[in-house]
């Protein structure tokens, strides 16, 4: 990653500060630099005239769109991922990756909106409850149906959703019967757990029950290290 020119830059800051003064913003190879105030003022005036994302307020209640619009976009996402995948595993993996990048964003947004009461989750059960309740409510308008711990293994938990919103209008063809497109939502969960340092792998499985043909169980398997850390902390 470091090329000869980078090394020269770092060791001769006086030379480079004049060269790089043309671009504001943080440059990791240079560290914090203080631009001359005249240039800062110039930057400030150009920045305020352009539209930027920082002027947009986060605290107003999120508007809504039609669920079918989301379903169409999700459908297109599945079709695109399918084109480049050779099987169900790979397709679910791609959907998981797409959801994984969204997880931390959702988490930070929800926490920010909590305002003064915001707190971080530091216990395993609490982060799962946070996902089951807060995350589900923000994304899908209701809490998830069940949160369970597996009786067979201490590193396995399950969140159940009887009627997952995103896959409501998706019908999986018979020859892909094992596919559960909620791999995307599994990715969101995995993304949240990973940044909270509760690393896990999450997968979505269809477990039908009478009356709930779309019932999906999100199977969460925590890394061994995480479970050991939790046990150490709580002297199990």
């Amino acid at each position: 990653m470091s090329q000869p020119s980078d090394i020269i830059q770092v060791s001769n800051p006086t030379q480079t500060s004049t060269k790089s003064a043309l671009k504001g913003g943080y440059n990791p190879s240079l560290g914090p630099i203080q631009l001359p105030t005249s240039y800062q003022a110039q930057l400030a005036s150009t920045a305020s005239s352009k539209r930027n994302i920082y002027d947009h307020s986060l605290s107003r209640r999120a508007p809504e769109v039609n669920l079918s619009s989301l379903s169409y976009i999700f459908n297109v996402m599945i079709q695109y991922s399918q084109k480049n995948s050779k099987g169900i595993q790979e397709l679910e993996g791609k959907l998981n990756t797409l959801g994984y990048s969204i997880g931390p964003k959702v988490l930070e947004l929800i926490t920010l909106r909590e305002g003064k009461n915001a707190k971080r989750e530091i216990k395993l059960v609490e982060i799962l409850q946070f996902i089951h309740t807060q995350v589900w409510r923000t994304l899908f308008g209701r809490v998830a149906d069940e949160l369970e711990k597996s009786s067979e293994a201490d590193d396995e938990y399950m969140i159940t959703d009887k009627q997952p919103l995103m896959s409501e209008f998706i019908s999986v063809p018979k020859d892909m019967g094992q596919l559960n497109v909620n791999a995307f939502v599994a990715g969101i969960i995995e993304g949240i757990l990973d940044v909270c340092y509760f690393q896990a792998s999450v997968s979505a499985h269809t477990v039908e029950t009478p009356g709930c043909p779309n019932r999906t169980v999100f199977f969460i398997k925590f890394d061994r290290d995480v479970i050991e850390r939790e046990n150490l902390r709580f002297h199990k």
Binding site: G24, G25, Y26, P28, Q40, L43, A47, N52, S101, V195
Partner: peptide, 13 residues
């Protein structure tokens, strides 16, 4: 993405 460097000059300002 998470952990990307924030190099936006507007952010800096």
């Amino acid at each position: 993405k998470v952990n990307d460097v924030i190099s936006s000059s507007v952010f800096d300002l």
